Lab assay of single mutants.
Amino acid sequence: MEVRTIKVFTTVDNINLHTQVVDMSMTYGQQFGPTYLDGADVTKIKPHNSHEGKTFYVLPNDDTLRVEAFEYYHTTDPSFLGRYMSALNHTKKWKYPQVNGLTSIKWADNNCYLATALLTLQQIELKFNPPALQDAYYRARAGEAANFCALILAYCNKTVGELGDVRETMSYLFQHANLDSCKRVLNVVCKTCGQQQTTLKGVEAVMYMGTLSYEQFKKGVQIPCTCGKQATKYLVQQESPFVMMSAPPAQYELKHGTFTCASEYTGNYQCGHYKHITSKETLYCIDGALLTKSSEYKGPITDVFYKENSYTTTIK
């Protein structure tokens, strides 16, 4: 009895394709271990004539594949690729409408935090270190965002349907971005203890939790000093293409032309909904596939993004 075979390709990165001759009487799992086709788990399936010449994702289970996976995804987590594939199996079914010149995501599976993050990423200057993220990001900007969303979920250790947080998501993504040249110098002034300067680099240099107003941050924000008295913390120097200011959701007025974009969060910790506000020729609110415009805006804002380049204080 002759062994019926077909020729397929296996890959971990969709760049390096490895030619395989597979036995049609055995499952993919018996031949390769966990195997995925377009995100779908085909591990328990036997090869079919229609699979001839198709590319299958496999887990990096030998040295060659491990090197290829690390170079593309910059992670050695053995569960990463499987999590990416199972997320992709959902995100490829989502709709990605162009809204006001940006790629958004039609609401499904509690994905409003991903839509808000995706919209924000198209408006701030950011370059990702893992080629996987950078490639998928370019495709997302062009309207094909399924891979990018699935990668975000995998890097953030999230599953489809789980509630997510924009600030946490951005923080994970910033860790995989090139923020080497970003720098922030802060000064804390206390009447009792004097003053202390701190220099922050990388992710810490672009994120701040405690106030939404970048102007206020430049002037000074009140913080408790270690001595128990009130101290003032203010920005001395900022070198970065953008800054992200966050605070627990509270009524906040966004003035046209003073910011790049913002995240609105309605609801409580267990259950809520994100919308995205962007400042173009007027203010726009993007909620999944829905767009509304207004000249002014007041609502429960939790993150505001500002364009920056270089700032030095005039406070002496």
Rank of each mutant, 00 (worst) to 15 (best):
H18W: 01
T258A: 15
C285K: 06
Q197L: 11
L121A: 15
A87R: 02
K233P: 05
T159R: 15
L81V: 14
N129E: 14
F242T: 06
Y36V: 01
Y208L: 06
L254T: 09
E296W: 13
K183A: 05
L235M: 01
V203G: 12
M245P: 04
H90M: 10
S181T: 12
I315W: 12
D41V: 08
P131H: 01
M245A: 08
L65P: 07
Q196K: 09
L163I: 14
M207F: 13
H90G: 12
G228Y: 04
L179G: 01
T199G: 05
T313A: 14
C225E: 02
P224G: 08
Q196V: 10
K255C: 07
C285L: 15
Y269T: 09
C225R: 03
N100M: 15
V99C: 09
L126F: 11
Q251S: 15
C225I: 02
K46L: 01
K191G: 08
F174L: 10
T278F: 07
I286P: 05
K92W: 04
K307Q: 12
V99P: 07
A262K: 05
L153C: 09
P78L: 15
Y306P: 06
H51V: 01
F9M: 15
S79P: 00
S294M: 11
K44W: 11
T55W: 06
Q134D: 06
G53Y: 11
E281L: 01
G257D: 13
H90S: 12
L81A: 06
K93P: 02
T232C: 08
A177T: 15
I15W: 07
K229W: 09
F217R: 04
F174G: 00
C112Y: 01
G288Y: 04
G161V: 06
F148N: 00
S295E: 13
A132R: 06
D41K: 06
E68M: 11
V99F: 15
S246L: 03
C190G: 00
S50F: 13
K255R: 10
K93V: 03
Q134T: 11
L17K: 15
Y269G: 15
K219N: 13
S310G: 11
N49R: 08
T91G: 00
T169Q: 04
P249Y: 02
N89E: 01
P300Q: 15
K233T: 12
T43C: 10
I301V: 11
Y269I: 12
L290G: 11
Y73D: 03
T116V: 12
L151A: 00
I15L: 15
T226W: 12
C261F: 01
E296Q: 11
T198M: 07
V189C: 09
L126E: 11
N268C: 09
Y214I: 10
Y84L: 03
C149I: 08
Y311T: 07
Q230R: 09
N14Y: 13
V12N: 11
C156D: 00
V304Q: 02
L235F: 04
D165G: 10
Q123P: 00
Q122G: 06
T211D: 06
F80A: 01
Q222R: 13
V99L: 15
I45K: 12
K233S: 13
S79Y: 05
E144G: 05
K7Q: 12
H273P: 02
E264H: 07
R66V: 14
Q20L: 03
C271S: 12
D135A: 12
Y284T: 06
T302A: 10
C225H: 14
N14E: 07
F80D: 04
N110L: 00
T103C: 02
F242A: 07
E215L: 03
H176W: 09
P300K: 14
M24N: 11
L235Q: 03
R167E: 07
S263K: 04
Y73P: 00
I105S: 00
N111I: 05
K95R: 12
G257I: 02
T55I: 15
Y72Q: 14
L102A: 05
H90D: 08
M244K: 02
T76A: 09
S295W: 10
T159Y: 14
K219W: 07
Q31M: 13
P78D: 12
G220M: 03
Q197M: 10
L290I: 13
